[in-house]
Simulated assay, not measured.
Amino acid sequence: MTWRLGLVAGEPSGDLIASRVLAGLSRRDPAMRPEGIGGPNLSAQGMDVWHPMHALTVFGYVDAFKRLPSLLRIYHDVKSRWLREPPQLFLGVDAPDFNFRLENRLKRAGIPTVHFVGPSIWAWRYERIRHIRESVSHMLVLFPFEEAIYRKEGIPVTYVGHPLADAIPMTPDRAAARRRLQISDNARVLAILPGSRSSEVRLIAPRFLQAAQIMQKRDPSLQFVVPMVNEARKLEFETALAQYPVNHLQILLSSTQSGIQTDPTAWLALEACDAALVASGTATLETALFKRPMVISYAVSPMIRRVMGWKSGQERPYLPWVGLPNILLNDFVVPELIQEDATPEKLASAMWGLLDNASLCEQIQNRFAEMHHTLKCDTPTRVAQALEHIVHDGV
């Protein structure tokens, strides 16, 4: 018997993992028919895409305000369609601001709602748990410690592992990556990842480049690889590079095939490097899964910092760490330099503290390997099994 799956994925990462989930579901249950909001990967799996996922993508508070009318139109369109013809199940993938509101309305109409990738309530705005309880029938979480949080609050939850841990090799091939980049096996290579958003590149890249200049004065042969997600970010980075020039630096640009992104260029940079200077975010987890020592850094403008504090009602996260690897390992395994501490001098000093300490690097790599094993769970299969169970047996 045919059954319909409502689905909203609002980011490229969500489009990719949701497409893998659909591939597994389709093999196990060919009667499933997905529909909703997604990108090229979901479309390639046969999903009826009502709106493209980029329609939900916003960068920061100002962009969200400008895009509010179109976001509301899309919201009311998908909501009214699913209320008229309810799907057997709704799956929201990340995009919490959009999906939780939609899930709340659908759940009140009797439609089971599943949310995959929980927001970081363990770091910011724990009070959101009340809205999640009202909106979500079942949570699917990426990290083991999240299960206890939702169970304590009476929310059905399943830990499904992290899709990046399935996709990134347990033993990276540094030599092969360097051959692709035409870098010598004997070179000392540092990856620089200043973020994927315009505001991040404009604010963080100059600090990272000045740190690279300081390090290159100490070792003129030091090489750098810098992955960029698109041409716009590349141009912004090149503007900073013109102001703070660095020798032996390669900029790598992500590519697509038939509109579908191949393995991120960041992965090639991380596989090839000895260590990395990384803006806080998912890139820190990717770096850890590649077993590369890193320095984590982040900075926002004073205005954005005030807005974040006003919206969250707190000046700092609940946890003492901001980087996902440190959070998952419950320890300052790698240095974090945030806001006022993110000076070029401190960044360069912290990087040398890693590059010149082989024993410390080995310890870090061993901790990251343990973390990788914990997160590697065949996430698409676990998600597909959880959805099947909910559809056929209830939440």
Rank of each mutant, 00 (worst) to 15 (best):
Y159L: 09
S221F: 07
G154E: 12
E127T: 10
P163S: 04
E153Y: 02
Y244G: 04
Q213C: 09
T113G: 14
R179A: 13
L193Y: 01
S196D: 07
R151L: 13
P119C: 13
A187L: 11
F208S: 02
I183E: 14
I149N: 00
G161C: 04
R133W: 02
A205V: 08
R130A: 15
E146T: 03
G195P: 10
E134A: 15
I155D: 06
D166Y: 06
E238H: 10
R178H: 10
M228D: 08
Q223H: 14
P227A: 09
Y150C: 02
L249C: 14
G118S: 15
S120K: 15
R233K: 12
L235N: 11
V136N: 03
I204A: 06
D219P: 00
P144T: 07
Y159F: 15
P206T: 08
Y244L: 02
V117F: 06
S199V: 13
A123T: 13
A165E: 08
V141S: 00
Q216G: 11
A205C: 04
A232W: 01
R218P: 00
H162S: 02
L164P: 05
L181G: 10
D166Q: 06
A191E: 08
V189A: 11
R218H: 09
E146Q: 10
G118N: 10
E238N: 10
A205K: 03
R188C: 13
F145S: 12
D219E: 12
R218I: 05
S120N: 13
P194V: 14
L181V: 09
L241A: 09
V201E: 03
R130N: 12
T113S: 14
A211M: 12
L222E: 06
S135L: 08
L193W: 01
E134F: 00
L249W: 03
I149R: 01
L142Y: 03
A211Q: 12
H248A: 06
E236R: 13
P144W: 04
A205T: 13
T239Q: 15
L181A: 09
R125K: 14
H162F: 02
R233T: 15
T158C: 02
G161K: 00
L222H: 04
D166I: 05
H162R: 01
E231G: 02
L249H: 03
L209N: 08
E231R: 12
H162V: 02
K152T: 07
P163Q: 03
H162C: 01
V157S: 01
E200M: 07
D173G: 09
I214P: 00
K152W: 00
F237R: 11
I121R: 04
M170Q: 13
A211I: 14
I155W: 00
F224G: 09
F208T: 07
E146H: 09
L181H: 12
Y159N: 05
T171Q: 12
P194N: 10
